[in-house]
Design a protein around this nucleic acid. Sequence first.
DNA 1: AAAAGAATTGACCATTTGGTCAGTTTATAC
DNA 2: GTATAAACTGACCAAATGGTCAATTCTTTT
Lengths: 219, 219
Amino acid sequence: MTKAKSAIKNADPGNTKPSATRIQKQNRQIIVEAALLVFSDYGYRGSTVAQIADAANMSKANLLYYFDSKQAVYLSVLEYTLSEWLQPLSEMNPDGDPADEIWRYAKAKLAMSKSKPEASRLFANEILQGAPMIGEFLQTDLRVLLDDRCKVIQQWIDQGKLNSVSPLHLMFFIWATTQHYADFSAQTAFLTDNTDTLFDDAESSLKTLLFNGLLPLKS
Amino acid sequence: MTKAKSAIKNADPGNTKPSATRIQKQNRQIIVEAALLVFSDYGYRGSTVAQIADAANMSKANLLYYFDSKQAVYLSVLEYTLSEWLQPLSEMNPDGDPADEIWRYAKAKLAMSKSKPEASRLFANEILQGAPMIGEFLQTDLRVLLDDRCKVIQQWIDQGKLNSVSPLHLMFFIWATTQHYADFSAQTAFLTDNTDTLFDDAESSLKTLLFNGLLPLKS
DNA sequence: AAAAGAATTGACCATTTGGTCAGTTTATAC
DNA sequence: GTATAAACTGACCAAATGGTCAATTCTTTT
């Protein structure tokens, strides 16, 4: 995944720059990181090149010296963020204990929402707009990865190790609940008192719900 | 709620128009409905007045004859959508069976995501951008409503009728999972085969997860 | 240290976009 | 039917924005 051939629309069109200067590498990095903050806050259309240049402490003209266009910056940001964001997905061991494996994954996703909320919001924005740039990636790379994980979960269910739920929807639930805390942090902040224990509370509640559900065991 | 005094930023600034023509009412309605479709698809910044006017079959100038500005249209759309969107929340009966009441609510939310995905996306966009317009509403009206529901759920827990989870996070969990299907429909569409049974599958999986969790009952 | 190339920028341009306005057409009141 | 108000529109404007470019400064190479 780190160096996948990128199903992101028009990303890196035959781009493997033969050589990149020290300053080039450095500035491209600075730009991409600044752009991540801006894009994740305002979405693609809502962000301006001037804003990004500002965040990168650089003139607009200079930014466009390193990237051909606003869209090129956006694509680079998506690419830069994607592998990191999906990493937890590749860490589910079919031979491990189902509950352990699923919980490790859910916990990793939740931790990610806490530590990299910008990444989550970036994708939330992109997908809300219909995933114009990463649509192909979703259909291909992610789809394959996800189908594989679903098969594993289905096995666990068939072996009676888990209650019968749709593996696909289980994944959706985990994504939805964990990313919610990043994507809708504006909302949760307005509705929560002690925001310092927010993620800990979320974690324990999620654990209970995910594995035991709401109904107490009738003795 | 239907005629709350609206904690939406600058909505209806002393607006109670003494009289509204037949044509005025009709065209305002048409505009708001067209704008909902456009705003929910492209977000506030991503939408243009011309787009909305187009969707409403009306010249841009005429649209701005009915609304002072793009923002005024946006605020009207939010106001128009809000009460409808929150309606399920006000339908939880403290004296009913906890599981029934919660499930009725969750099911209503999921049905809403299916029937009114634009509304969900509209708010998702708004909240992603930091809820600049409905922030005050979230802090006041919604907060009060939510706190009340949480107290009810906490009672049920205290009575041993439900497992111990944070009521607040339970609500977040329900919101996240149900709205996911509207907000990220672009993603789910790319990752799902039979999209016609999508919501039914989601419903049954949600029910299992919400009430029984993943772990089978150990005998 | 000087030549060559890379990096940087202010000024500028074309397009998009929110919003205005004078003037025309349509509906309503009498 | 005619006067009055409401509804509607094309043309226009100013600001914002993505992107270009010639000219200048800084690095690197030899």
